[in-house]
């Protein structure tokens, strides 16, 4: 195994947990999240091993940008894969998880499902990945003002969907 490949695998193992968390928030279920993470790692792999000028200045940022772009592209293409039976409910909590945490997760996933893919990506980048407005705008190919507008719209939508249960969810989300 080459040194470059070892470095990639080390990076991927370190970064994949956070990529998976972001992917889950984007996709709303474990199977699609795993698929998205693997597609993202594949793109980073190709770039990592590019023979000429293949260096990546900030691999973590590059990977997260690749993740949201891959997600949005997939959402735009996804319509043909939609079937009447496609929307299988996410599995309930496994035995190792707190039931309240699982309930929060499912409620949040249902609320996020109401958002447009780009709005969802904006929320995840801004509030889960701590990405700046400017970097979010650059990653998604929109203006900074569009990021701000989409953030407000997404928050309004979440407020409408979650209603007053938000405080309860925040309380129970990490339990």
């Amino acid at each position: 195994m080459s040194r470059r490949h070892e470095e990639f695998e080390e990076f991927a193992r370190t970064r994949t947990p956070q990529l998976y968390r972001s992917a889950w928030m984007l996709c709303g279920d474990a199977h699609r999240a795993e698929d998205l993470v693997q597609d993202t790692l594949a793109k980073v792999f190709v770039r990592w091993h590019r023979p000429l000028g293949g260096g990546i200045d900030n691999p973590a940022a590059y990977a997260h940008t690749a993740l949201v772009r891959t997600y949005i592209s997939a959402q735009r293409r996804r319509s043909n894969h939609e079937r009447p039976t496609e929307h299988l409910p996410e599995q309930a909590a496994t035995g190792a998880e707190h039931p309240e945490g699982a309930a929060t997760r499912l409620t949040l996933a249902a609320a996020l499902e109401q958002l447009a893919p780009l709005d969802r990506a904006v929320l995840v980048m801004r509030y889960l990945d701590d990405t700046s407005v400017a970097d979010t705008a650059a990653a998604l190919g929109v203006s900074g003002q569009a990021v701000r507008n989409r953030t407000l719209r997404a928050l309004d939508r979440l407020r409408a969907v979650l209603g007053t249960s938000l405080d309860d969810l925040i309380e129970s989300g990490g339990s």
Binding site: R13, V37, V44, F45, H98, R105
Partner: peptide, 30 residues
């Protein structure tokens, strides 16, 4: 509030087998 909710919910997720995901990514990348 959203920040907290997203982070806490994400932290509560059961992680899949990381080595399997990395191996899948490498395979697709190749």
């Amino acid at each position: 509030g959203v920040d907290l909710l997203l982070r806490r919910t994400a932290d509560d997720l059961a992680l899949p087998d990381i080595d399997r995901l990395v191996a899948g990514g490498v395979s697709r990348g190749r």
